[in-house]
Structures are given as C-alpha cells and as structure tokens.
Simulated assay, not measured.
Amino acid sequence: MTRPSPARERILLTADRLFYDEGIHAVGIQRIVAESGVTRVTLYRHFPSKDDLIAAYLDRRAAHDHAQVDGVIDAHRDDPRRALTELAVVLTRDDFAGIRRGCPFINASAEFTGSHPARVRAHEIRRWVTGRLEELLRRLDHRDPRAGAEQLMMVRTGAVVSGALDGNDRLGEDFVRCWDQLIDSGLPSPTERS
C-alpha cells in the first residue's frame, strides 16, 4: 500500500473546491497547479489527464456519501423505518447546507455527454443510494420497493435543486414530510400485516 501523498491531497482539495464552485469546464489545469502549490509534473504524475482528476474528485465525493449513508443505516440496523427518516434528516442537516450550488454529481454530469467519467460516476452513486433505499423498503415490506426508492431519489434530487435555487426557508421540513409520506404510502396497513 502506498503512503498518502500530501501533494495529491492538495491537488484533490483544490480541484474539489474549484470544480464545485466554478464548474469543471471553467477550471483549467494550470489554475489547479497554481492554487494547489504543485508543479505540472507532480499533478500529471498523480492524475495523467484532467479526466482522471475529475474521476478522483467524484470518487472522493462518493466515498463521503457511502460513509454517510452506511453510517446512518448501521446506526439503525434493527429499525429500517428509522434509518430512512434519519437519512432524510442527515440530508437536510448536512447536504442542503453544504451544497449551495446543487449536487456535485448532477452538476458534473451536466457538463459532459456520453460515457464521460463524470456521467459514469454520477450514475454509479445514484444507483448505489437508490439500491440502499430499496433494501430498507424491502425490509419494511413496502408494496413496491423499487418504485419507492426511485421516487425517494427523485424527491431528494428535487430538494437539492430547490435548495440551490429557490430560497425555501422551510426546505428541510418540507422535504422530510414529503419523504416520510412517500415511504408510509407504500407500507402495509396494520390489517395487512396481520
């Protein structure tokens, strides 16, 4: 296993900030080199192309999302309904406040077409989160866990966009209420459980 490189970390932190704040196409390699305090040779040693740097930036964001979602699910291992609500609460508390320009995966994906790494990474993380939601809904005997998980992702995506554009000061409350209603509408009634 190779030791973590401080230069690689600086490059990634700089790219993360600039790509998210200004957009990937708007930020050139020379600017990342200058702001991260490395040489061009050092950057290309760690990231042979800008596409490699884009992929690493999104992989880093995805690793955070994996840890966040898995942490909530693990904390409520025996209560999938509570895990689902806590995921919504974490999204409102952490993500809506920290993603003032919208979802980094959607933003990056919008800048590219076809099978570019940005689009591939966006698809991968969305599929992974949707899959985790579907697993929780299955554990609750939801009537249609696949559709329920897809709808929850749609609501989350809409809420993130709303947070970046609309200035809704009750976004968190509105989001959690909608999220919970979607979940509950697909759960068996007490008589169905009997």
Rank of each mutant, 00 (worst) to 15 (best):
G71T: 12
L58E: 05
D59T: 10
I54P: 04
R31D: 04
V90N: 02
D70A: 14
S162R: 13
P4H: 03
A63Q: 09
D95R: 14
D79P: 14
D59M: 08
H76W: 08
H64T: 08
T14E: 07
H66S: 11
W179V: 02
D51R: 07
G167R: 11
P6W: 02
F112T: 02
D141A: 14
D51M: 07
A122P: 06
L137G: 05
H76S: 15
V90E: 15
L152E: 04
A63K: 12
Y44R: 01
V41E: 15
A56N: 09
Y44T: 04
S36M: 12
G186E: 06
D78F: 12
A147S: 13
Y57C: 00
R100S: 10
V33M: 02
G148Y: 07
A55P: 02
E111L: 03
R139T: 06
A55H: 04
D174N: 10
T42R: 10
E135M: 12
R121S: 05
R3P: 09
G102L: 03
D70I: 09
T157A: 11
P188N: 01
A34M: 12
D174V: 03
H76N: 12
V176H: 10
R156H: 11
H142Y: 11
A7E: 07
H64A: 02
P117K: 01
E192M: 01
P48Q: 00
S115V: 14
D180T: 15
E86Q: 14
R127H: 15
I29C: 02
I54R: 03
L137S: 08
H142W: 13
L43N: 06
R60Q: 02
V155G: 13
I99L: 12
V160M: 10
Q68W: 15
E150L: 06
D144W: 09
S49G: 00
E135D: 10
P4Q: 11
G158H: 05
R31G: 00
S185E: 05
E22C: 03
V120M: 05
R93K: 14
I29R: 12
G131Y: 05
H123A: 14
K50A: 04
L53I: 00
S194I: 14
Q181P: 08
S115M: 15
A110V: 06
P190L: 06
F105Q: 04
A63R: 11
L137E: 05
D94Y: 12
D169S: 14
E35V: 00
L137M: 01
W128L: 10
D51K: 05
T92V: 10
A62M: 07
L140D: 06
A97W: 05
L18A: 03
L140Y: 09
I32P: 01
E173D: 13
A110G: 07
R100L: 09
V38C: 15
D180A: 06
R126M: 15
I99G: 02
L137Q: 04
R81H: 04
D94A: 01
R119M: 13
V41S: 15
Y20V: 00
L165N: 08
D166H: 15
E22Q: 04
D51L: 08
G186H: 03
A88E: 07
E35I: 03
L152K: 08
Y44W: 09
V33C: 08
I24A: 00
Q30E: 15
L84M: 10
